[in-house]
Simulated scan of single mutants.
Amino acid sequence: MVLAPLAAVPLAAGLSAGLILALRPLLQRYALARPNARSSHTVPTPQGGGIAIVLAVLASVGAVLALRGAGLDALEALILAHATLALAILGAVDDIRPLPASLRLGVQAVVVAGLVMAVGGRLMPGVPVPVERAVAILAGIWFVNLVNFMDGLDWMTVAAFVPLTAALLLLGASGGLPFLPTLVAAALLGGLLGFAPFNRPVARLFLGDVGSLPLGLLGAWLLYRLAVAGGLAAAILLPLYYLADATLTLGRRLLRREPVWQAHRSHWYQRATDNGFPVIAVVGRVFLLNLALAGLAGATLLWPSWPVTVLACGAGIALVASVLHAFARRRTIG
């Protein structure tokens, strides 16, 4: 049980790095992201590296399931694979020629709904099933999009997802998560580690929508699986910085009647670079924050009681608020 998911980490890392090396000349030629007023980069940089992560995850998970036997996980794994590929294709097309927001949301709604139905389980037993499913679908769509919104800085997605997937892998290895999500977390961790050297500041390769959309879907599914397994508080704590930055930014833009479907530079992490924070300082703080949030999430699972949950959630909110506050202020040197 433990060795199979752990083996997926180096396998996916090697596949991801190898695919990037093989595909980079094509991405350099056909998928250049040119800087504009809202960009965090200043020179044309190839995007689309996320396709290597997606393929590495799917290949690693498929290989392990083929060797072990998929068993009862076969149908859910198949639905997850098709949903991930659907969003990767959607993102690839959008990277080349921007698609209408309505089409993007429509495809996302279909694939998220399919996954929610495949998982089953209950989070709120007192709530009617259709209402709970609708809330889960809306939350999944939002998570897919917020990961896309937050992927605007070198190493930002790595800083967010490496602690999250590593925490889920440790939880699964200790028996706190079923085999399939443990395996997917391990493969996603490996894929990101293989991508990380190419995306470190100053990045030589970007994730692109072909990566951020399916990664958001995989992250949403992993967190939903964790919540259904009894870890709702942990599922909220693990991505709390992303949830706070993206949701508060959206709310602020709605209040200002700004077109929320257009690209912008008003996320807290973007404001931090405008306020004098080096990129490595921003993603370093986010990475350390996410490690702390993973520790708090673990505490709610190790000691499942309402006092621990309240204290952990309060501490998580305070930590996220302190980072957002720091990012919103101009950095002083000396």
Rank of each mutant, 00 (worst) to 15 (best):
G284P: 01
A37C: 12
I317E: 15
S266Q: 11
I96V: 13
V129T: 05
A4S: 13
G276R: 14
H325A: 12
S39L: 05
L250F: 05
T247W: 02
A326W: 03
M150W: 05
D151E: 11
I51T: 09
A173Y: 10
S60G: 14
P100F: 09
G298C: 11
I89T: 14
M156K: 05
A13K: 04
L27P: 02
A246E: 10
Y241N: 00
L19A: 06
G91E: 11
A81G: 07
V184N: 00
V64A: 07
T42A: 03
C313E: 08
V93C: 02
L183M: 08
L123S: 00
L11K: 00
S16I: 14
A118P: 00
A118C: 05
L250D: 04
V119A: 13
A246Y: 02
R133H: 15
A318C: 05
L170F: 15
T273E: 03
L254S: 00
L254P: 01
Q262S: 09
Y224Q: 14
A318D: 09
V158W: 03
I89E: 03
V279P: 05
L99Y: 14
R330Y: 04
L169R: 04
S266T: 15
L171G: 01
L87Y: 01
L146F: 10
A196W: 07
P128H: 10
A92H: 07
L55C: 15
P214E: 02
L153D: 06
A88Y: 08
L218P: 00
L146D: 14
M124I: 15
Q28P: 05
L80G: 07
L288F: 06
R122A: 13
M1I: 13
I53G: 02
L103S: 01
L207D: 06
V54Q: 01
N275C: 15
R97G: 15
G231F: 00
L80F: 12
R265Q: 13
L226R: 01
L153W: 04
L6I: 09
L3Y: 05
M150T: 10
L138F: 15
L26M: 14
S102H: 14
A196S: 04
R34D: 04
L189F: 10
E258I: 09
T273L: 12
E132V: 06
V9L: 11
R271V: 11
G231S: 04
P163W: 12
M150R: 09
A328H: 12
A134S: 09
A227F: 02
L85V: 06
W155Y: 07
E76W: 03
S40C: 10
G276P: 06
M156F: 10
A166D: 14
L123R: 01
A139N: 06
V116C: 03
A272N: 04
L32K: 15
V2L: 12
G126M: 11
H325Y: 04
A185Y: 11
L164D: 01
R330T: 02
D73T: 03
L67G: 06
A234P: 01
D94V: 09
G120N: 09
L189M: 08
G194M: 01
Y242H: 10
A13H: 03
L26H: 14
R24F: 08
L72D: 14
A81N: 04
A167T: 07
